[in-house]
Amino acid sequence: MKPENTNYLRELVRSATGIVLEVEKEYLLEARLSPVAHREGLGDVESLVEMLRMNPDGVLRDMVLDAMTTNETSFFRDLHPFDALRQTILPQLMERRAETRTLNIWSAVCSSGQEPYSLLMMLSENFPELSSWNLNFLASDVSTSMIERARAGRYSQFEVSRGLPASFLVKYLSKVGQSWEMDAGLRKAVKFQVLNLVQPWPALPTMDIIMMRNVLIYFDNATKEKILRKACGCLRGDGYLFLGSSEVLMGLDVALQRTSIDGSWCYQPESRTPAVP
């Protein structure tokens, strides 16, 4: 690709999403945008950029941003955070919130919905008493099309084969044609919302649990700090933040302390109630 076109795309992605495409990740432009160019009958990515330059605010821009911000996802990705939530964190939080019977959970980078639905299936299996609680479950993503997919809760056979136990598949999803559809009750239990982490956030309830996994790796340190400070600001003092297993806060100036629970790292606001041992 011509360097000026690469730079144009990098700047478009950076200004709209905050994602910084390092030189070694530039191959992603070609890899992810070639299918968009072919689908739109534009031949190749060079032609796609020419079209974008002519109409920089059109639907093609959204398609490009969608393609560049869609992350690989699967049900129960990395299992460990789900173990930590099930074995330690949720029993603890439910005890502490017994009076208000309210829990606020945010899946901040929900992609096509596998993470929030995994959490809800886990809650339903292990904490049926939560059905009488006030459970506010927010799931957000920068991509409009991903939010629409997540809200629809329809998955291909390939997608349900990624990380989802068969017992959950047949209990919480139904086969509709060649797809699998998430249980209507679970779909209704989540509020799906488009939210760009690098732009101003809407008013959010104070969260007990925030899942923000495998997204910070795309941002530079200044942007990471901004996002984490905001996340910290809407996290309850004894709440928990989960990042991706390979994401570390080293060198970042944020008031979060790292705790290991049931094989998973998670973060809590500093100088607060320590985690259950």
């Binding site: 699967s74 129960f76 990395d78 460990h80 056979q157 084969s161 990624r162 990380g163 068969a166 017992s167």
Partner: peptide, 28 residues
């Protein structure tokens, strides 16, 4: 049966099923 994997499958799917069954560590 403890779990169920539909063909065609990928190596990742097998690994994830084994992790669910507690037979190999979960991948991050």
């Amino acid at each position: 049966a403890d779990d169920y994997l539909m063909k065609p499958f990928t190596p990742e799917m097998v690994e994830e099923k084994l992790a669910i069954l507690g037979l190999c560590p979960a991948k991050g």
